[in-house]
């Protein structure tokens, strides 16, 4: 009879007993972890609340400070714009007295306005840079709370975040990257690969021609013309018929000025 080896029928009971003990012990450790974590979380929350209260003015008014703050939030896995659906109120709205949220929603409204105002001109595809310029230009003339919050500065990061905050609305606002440029698309329309390629190519010189597409992409004439016609139909490009060969320009280049 060997206790160590635990053979025989009694061993079943003992094994059952020990596994129960392990489980109990595990539960205890688990509970301890939870307690520790929730204490840490409480401390963290209060510290964060303290921080954001102390610095809420800076968060609201200083774009670079806000960007750093948002980066910190991302690093620790907190979404400043997390939707409030499963909570009584938005965590951040509580933390910051709503000011940061108001800031982003106010900015989002501006972005929507800019997109709508320029939709006829650019077919609903606008570069983040241009949105930023227009928002900054209008920063002084905003009504209500937003004007208090918006001071001139670099809003690129903020605009990206504001566009993300529009997502729950299902309004078709989305970020797309074409070539090296970040664009905001305000009409729910998917570009096919050929169209994206042409828009990318346009960014190099500001325009393309059918023969340029043929030479550089190795496309047949029909394919090149079809893609361009599609882009024209979606009012994403403007036509210039006074060049030697008809040129198709991206409206983005209206705002790059010069001549």
């Amino acid at each position: 009879m060997s206790k160590k080896k635990g053979v025989g029928l009694a061993a079943f009971d003992r094994r059952h007993l020990s596994s129960q003990q392990y489980a109990d012990h595990g539960r205890i450790i688990h509970r301890q972890h939870i307690d520790e974590l929730s204490t840490q979380l409480a401390i963290f929350q209060s510290l964060l609340a303290h921080f954001s209260n102390t610095h809420s003015a800076a968060i609201r008014s200083d774009p670079s400070f806000r960007a750093a703050f948002a980066r910190m939030c991302t690093a620790i896995g907190v979404d400043p714009l997390a939707s409030s659906s499963n909570r009584k109120g938005n965590f951040w709205a509580e933390m910051l007295g709503g000011s940061v949220n108001d800031f982003y929603f106010g900015l989002a409204v501006r972005v929507v306005e800019v997109c709508r105002a320029t939709r006829a001109e650019n077919g609903g595809l606008i570069s983040v840079r241009e949105v930023r310029e227009r928002v900054e230009k209008g920063a002084g003339s905003l009504g209500g709370e937003v004007s208090e919050i918006l001071i001139p500065g670099n809003y690129s990061d903020d605009i990206l975040r504001a566009v993300k905050s529009l997502k729950p609305l299902g309004s078709g606002f989305a970020m797309v990257t074409i070539g090296k440029q970040q664009m905001i698309r305000s009409v729910p329309k998917e570009l096919n690969t050929d169209q994206s390629t042409v828009l990318e190519t346009i960014q190099i010189l500001g325009y393309v021609t059918v023969s340029m597409l043929q030479a550089n992409l190795g496309w047949e004439r029909v394919r090149s013309q079809t893609v361009i016609d599609d882009l024209l139909a979606d009012s994403l490009v403007w036509v210039d018929m006074q060049a030697e060969e008809t040129e198709y320009w991206s409206p983005t280049f209206i705002h790059d000025g010069g001549g």
Binding site: E121, G123, E247, W249, P251
Partner: peptide
């Protein structure tokens, strides 16, 4: 204005929506 330096501004745009924007400008 900047559109004055944008070559297609001087060609009548065939797309109706684009043409509206062009007329406004």
């Amino acid at each position: 204005p900047r559109e004055y330096h944008f070559p297609p501004f001087f060609t009548r745009q065939r797309n109706a929506i684009t043409y509206t924007a062009q007329c406004q400008k």
